[in-house]
Design a protein around this nucleic acid. Structure first.
Length: 769
DNA sequence: CAGTGAGCGAGCTTCCGCTTGACTT
């Protein structure tokens, strides 16, 4: 039996280690953190007792803890979690749970999983670095205090179930601010003048170096130079290089996979996880661009043998990000000789991208030759510029990027006169900053040092499930663009309509995000400040270096933070709701107000009465019309909403059909049954249309039923057929034919099915924007 | 599933980081 137990964070890493250590070592994985502040039952931090935390084994880790305890019996335990703040904390929690002697505990670290690195680590064990652990505790507790004190303020002042935190609230703020920038952007136009000259057998396309401000000046300019003389003023050739990018980190992989393969951040991580588990790539959650010497050597050999020596250029990339912990290598293929790997088309594409990037990073820069030709215009001081670029050595472009075609200019010499073939002007507009997509948001967060490789994807999910952010395809707006051209020596003006601002998969804030961001900015400016994390990180470093105790750091922070929480209690709902008066109702003379209520955006007819005056008439409320934003709803759009519910007609057996808008959109209602009407408006739907909707829904419900035995039904659901008795659902095994199940078989399936774990049992409305 | 809307109070929600599968109607 083995005498030693090595504990690492990831089971895949455990597998690899088994190959490098002899039979005296048993390797087990902790699957990340095993202990944390309590998930349920409060904040778990006793502020009065010097921020004393309560730790408990995470519910999903009880089995693993049991296993580790069993495996550790009468063995020497080696704690080999990652060499960073979180890893040190994991080692400490494990040592606590296993009751290890702090003075004799063996903590080992390695930055790369190679045999020499591991043997070296085993030869030099140390004890747990409590200062580093304390830095992690401060980080953990600060995040808990911020999240668990801010969120309840939002429940009270904005809406139940909302959340705020050091990372997510900044992510939302970035998107809100960007959207406002875009809305505020006033596009300014100018005119780009382009010409095509005759040069020997070829053509020389050129652009005026300056843009012209107005259509009048552009028109006059074109007219003026239509008959001018053009002479080559200078020909300049420059040599340049293009260097490869560093091998991937989590963030750059997400960006490139988004740009080149259109993968979402989560999709990229899931695919990378599979590749990692099958040993094709190194660990995919990393902030380091570092490659192990062994890897560099293998890549160099590969490049030299495949492309030749002149394509090889060994380079170690420095990680730019200051907050990087560099516990792992960059993401690279584990076996560079394997040019393709992966279980499906998506994995194969991602592997290829990782492979190409890692190989290219060790290749020579590409060389280009740029040519710039300046052209004089007789009687004008402006000049045309023609530029061309030719790739003279492809270098790393051989494997990564460089899809751009050469633009080769015809040979011209200084003083040569040129004939004009074509002349045109085009109106161009200044563009606002681009909206964030998932990957560009991650890039920005990383730049700000906010969030970690393991949290980028979950953060993006959180801000979407909280309904702060929506991922949208944007249709764009039509815009008239003026084009100027030359016909028989005369300038002709035409106008074309083009679509601008169309974009795919962009992150757009909801009105809720604006309300919450404005509220947090007003009462907690210092917490959602872009520098907050950076400053906190400096202080965590101070704790790790022993310059300050974690309790003192938290005391200072909390002394500043908690009063803000108390002060925010003064905020009224009226203040947070951002009420906007649309005008008066012509019938009643009452004010029509658009604002954000407890359950989302809404319209209100009549002022909110004074709370003390119980007799005052209650205002009437209505939802917003479909497809209209709180910020631009008009009085005309709002007034009809107070007319609902509307009587549409009667069913064939004489029951009244009414139409209204509810929490889940517009519907028609018969007795107590509801039917969604996505394609109709409740204002205009006719009796015949309503009847059709009702008939369709009843038909669909019938088609869902595969078999029926009294209360027990076999239904077709989105995850395949299942059995239900109205309370409990049971999966049907794959080898069973759902159409041939007997009542007895169904009952058996139901009896054996696990009790519903309560997912989706929400007490609060899930959707309400 | 198809109320509501201010604020009160019962009892609920909530954070960030480290890891993987199990699970959804």
């Amino acid at each position: 039996m083995a005498k030693n137990l090595v504990i690492v964070e990831s089971p895949t890493k455990a597998k690899i280690l088994t190959q490098y250590l002899d039979k005296d070592f048993e390797i087990k994985s902790s699957f990340g953190h095993i202990r944390d502040l309590p998930k349920k039952g409060g904040i778990g931090v006793d502020v009065a007792k010097n921020f004393e935390p309560t730790y408990e084994v995470s519910p999903d880790k009880t089995a693993i803890v049991k296993e580790l305890k069993k495996a550790a019996k009468s063995k020497t335990v080696w704690l080999a979690s990652d060499p960073d703040r979180e890893g040190e904390a994991i080692a400490w929690h494990v040592s606590q749970i296993l009751g290890l002697d702090p003075k004799r505990v063996k903590r080992i670290i390695f930055h790369e999983i190679t045999k020499p690195a591991i043997l070296e680590a085993v030869a030099n064990p140390r004890t747990i670095d409590m200062k580093l652990v304390d830095a992690q505790q401060a980080r953990r507790i600060l995040d808990r205090l911020v999240g668990y004190e801010l969120s309840p303020v939002l429940w009270k002042k904005v809406r139940a179930g909302l959340s705020a935190g050091r990372v997510q609230s900044v992510a939302v703020k970035l998107i809100v601010e960007r959207e406002r920038e875009i809305k505020a952007h006033a596009a300014e136009s100018s005119f780009k003048i382009s010409a095509v000259f005759e040069a020997g057998k070829g053509e020389l396309p050129a652009e005026l170096t300056d843009k012209l401000k107005t259509v009048e000046t552009a028109e006059k300019f074109l007219g003026d130079i239509a008959k001018a003389k053009f002479t080559v003023a200078s020909v300049e050739q420059k040599l340049g290089t293009r260097s490869p990018g560093a091998p991937f980190t989590t963030s750059t992989l997400q960006q490139e996979a988004s740009r080149k393969l259109s993968y979402s951040v989560r999709q990229t991580m899931t695919l990378a996880q599979r590749l990692y588990e099958h040993g094709h790539i190194t660990y995919m959650r990393t902030d380091s661009t570092n490659l192990s010497p062994v890897a560099i050597d293998a890549v160099q050999k590969y490049i030299t043998s495949k492309y030749g020596e002149k394509y090889s250029q060994v380079k170690q990339y420095k990680t730019k990000n200051k907050s990087a912990q560099e516990a792992h290598e960059a993401i690279r293929p584990t076996h560079v000789d394997k040019e393709s790997a992966g279980a499906d088309a998506q994995q194969i594409k991602l592997y290829k991208l990782i492979w190409r990037r890692a190989v290219a990073s060790q290749m020579a820069p590409a060389a280009v030759e740029k040519t710039e030709v300046l052209i004089d215009i007789s009687g004008k001081k402006e000049q045309f510029l023609a530029s061309g670029e030719v790739l003279t050595f492809d270098g790393f472009f051989k494997v990564y990027g460089g899809g751009k075609d050469d633009s080769i200019l015809p040979v011209v010499t200084k003083g040569q006169s040129l004939n004009l073939n074509d002349l045109a002007g085009l109106q161009v507009f200044t563009k606002p900053a681009a909206r964030y997509g998932e990957a560009s948001l991650v890039k920005k967060l990383e730049e700000l040092g906010i969030g970690r490789p393991s949290t980028y994807a979950p953060t993006i999910s959180t801000i979407q499930t909280r309904e702060y952010i929506e991922k949208k395809d944007l249709e764009g707006q039509p815009r008239d663009v003026i084009e100027l051209s030359l016909k028989n020596g005369n300038v002709v003006r035409t106008t074309q309509s083009v679509t601008v601002g169309a974009d795919r998969a962009k992150l757009v804030p909801t009105p809720l995000a604006e309300i919450v961001t404005d509220f947090l900015a007003k009462y907690f400016a210092s917490i959602i400040d872009y520098d907050f994390t950076a400053k906190a990180e400096d202080e965590f470093d101070d704790i790790a270096e022993g310059k300050i105790s974690w309790q003192n750091m938290l005391k200072q922070f909390y002394g500043h933070f908690h009063p803000l929480v108390e002060k925010s209690g003064d905020a009224t709902r009226a203040e947070t709701s951002q009420a906007r008066k649309l005008g008066k109702d012509p019938k009643t003379g009452e004010s029509v107000i658009a604002r954000f209520g407890r359950y989302g955006p809404m319209l209100q007819l009549g002022e909110t009465p004074d709370t003390k005056d119980k007799e005052a008439p209650k205002p009437k409320f209505a939802p917003l019309p479909e497809g209209v934003e709180l910020s631009d709803v008009t009085l005309e759009q709002a007034l009809p909403m107070f007319e609902l519910p509307r009587e549409v007609g009667k069913t064939t057996d004489g029951q009244v059909i009414t139409a209204n808008i509810g929490r889940f959109g517009p519907y028609v209602k018969v007795d107590k049954q509801f039917f969604s009407i996505k394609d109709h408006s409740p204002m205009t739907i006719t009796e015949a249309q309503a009847k059709e909707v009702i008939a369709n829904k009843e038909k669909a419900a019938k088609e869902r039923v595969v078999a029926e035995f009294g209360k027990i039904q076999v239904l077709r659901g989105p995850y395949g057929p299942y059995v239900t008795d109205g309370k409990k659902n049971a999966k049907i095994p794959k080898d069973e034919d759902p159409t041939k199940l007997t009542e007895k078989a169904c009952q058996k399936l139901l009896d054996e099915a696990p009790v519903n774990k309560g997912r989706g049992h929400r007490k609060f409305p899930a959707k309400q924007i």
